[in-house]
Amino acid sequence: MQMSQEKQQKSTTSSERKDRIIDSLFLNRLQTVVTLNVFRGLLGMFQGYVKSFQAEKPLIHTLHSRMVEIIEDLLGMFIKPEYIPDKVGQLLKLNVTDLSIQKADKNLGVGKYAYTELSKARLDKACHHWVSKLYENLRTGYVMAAKKILQMPIANKTIRILSVLDPHFVGHSQTENSFKIIAKKLPQVFTADELGQLSVDVARYNVDQQVKQFASDYKEEDPIDTGFWKRVFSLQSFNQVKYPALKKLVTSVLTIFSGPLIESTFNIMDDIVEKDRTKMTVINYEAVAIVKTALRKKNVKSTNMKVSANMKKACISAYQTYKEYVKQIKEEKQRKHEENLKASVQLLKQEKAKRVSKLLRLKNKMLLKKQKEAPKRKLSHSNLEGGSKQKKAKVYVD
């Protein structure tokens, strides 16, 4: 390989790159293998977290616990376990750069693939130079990764409260309060008048024996929408939905999606927001995105779609709504314009009042100064008159 390399006509950069490859593959093979296995083992730690959120089922209720779990797993690789706090608030305040709470080199996490080879290399004096450097780089990498991963929104109250959707929280004392907080954060979905019905629904939900049975039957790998909540919402009381307000709230929250659905949404966005349509409002974009998603789901194109009477009514109604929306926008712009004019006039009046006040203060100051100087001038004038009289008397005597 080296002989064939010498025969080739290459640039200096190409030769240096190939020299480094040969050196890594043959001369320092153990170092290369160990380093690659460290990456291989550690990157796998994040693979489960990433893959779990690539599922098409709703996972918003697990987001907070998964974030805390991956943070604790990473910290456990280089921080002594007794210094890793259980509470989220204390976890965010952890000083990961403090060497006194970090593990010794031999106890640093290196993954399952590099552990045996690295343990042998650590005892070999010939490998001491690169092993110590590897541990130094690994420690630096852990600190940098910990600083970055601790920026995840684990302190976000909304994400934490959404965990109440998990069936394991049925019968918990904080369940009712958590659902109320979620409802208050969705004013466009839930009105203040519906909070009373929600309180009644959650109180019944917490003690319902059928719901508790559904919760015990639920398995973690099952979709939470069809595996648990669909069964809960199928319950009836006197031929009516047993939990109407709770159904409305949970259905709204479970529409928060992740993974492939987000990617498909961005694909739809690329089809809608183009160079000639970059100024679309959010409302218009959402409307077009909903229509495109519905068409794709039905495997129908707009060119061969049959227009029904209901669709015509919906279009007429949507157009009327759009005209009202445009009218509201114009009125809102006019109102803001008038408010800005009033604010500008008020500001000008204030500036004018300040200038007038400043001029009055200056005038009063000058008058006061003149009043203080008047007696002194009068006294000096009388002194001058007295002096002239004495001079005249003296001349007369002489």
Rank of each mutant, 00 (worst) to 15 (best):
257 F>K: 01
300 V>W: 11
274 E>A: 01
301 K>C: 05
299 N>E: 02
295 L>Y: 09
258 S>R: 04
253 V>F: 01
296 R>D: 03
288 V>T: 10
324 E>Q: 13
277 R>E: 01
310 N>C: 09
281 T>P: 12
261 L>P: 04
284 N>G: 07
302 S>Q: 02
288 V>Q: 09
288 V>C: 15
328 Q>E: 11
282 V>T: 14
296 R>E: 03
296 R>Q: 03
325 Y>F: 06
256 I>V: 01
280 M>N: 00
263 E>M: 04
316 I>K: 10
335 R>T: 15
335 R>A: 11
286 E>G: 12
298 K>M: 15
294 A>R: 10
252 S>N: 14
274 E>W: 00
257 F>Q: 03
284 N>A: 11
265 T>K: 07
316 I>E: 08
280 M>E: 00
267 N>W: 06
251 T>V: 10
281 T>S: 12
261 L>Y: 07
326 V>H: 15
329 I>G: 08
254 L>E: 02
324 E>D: 11
325 Y>D: 08
326 V>K: 12
310 N>I: 09
266 F>Q: 01
324 E>C: 15
262 I>H: 04
258 S>K: 01
252 S>V: 06
315 C>M: 12
287 A>W: 12
292 K>V: 13
258 S>C: 02
320 Q>N: 15
318 A>I: 03
331 E>V: 07
312 K>L: 13
320 Q>M: 14
307 V>W: 03
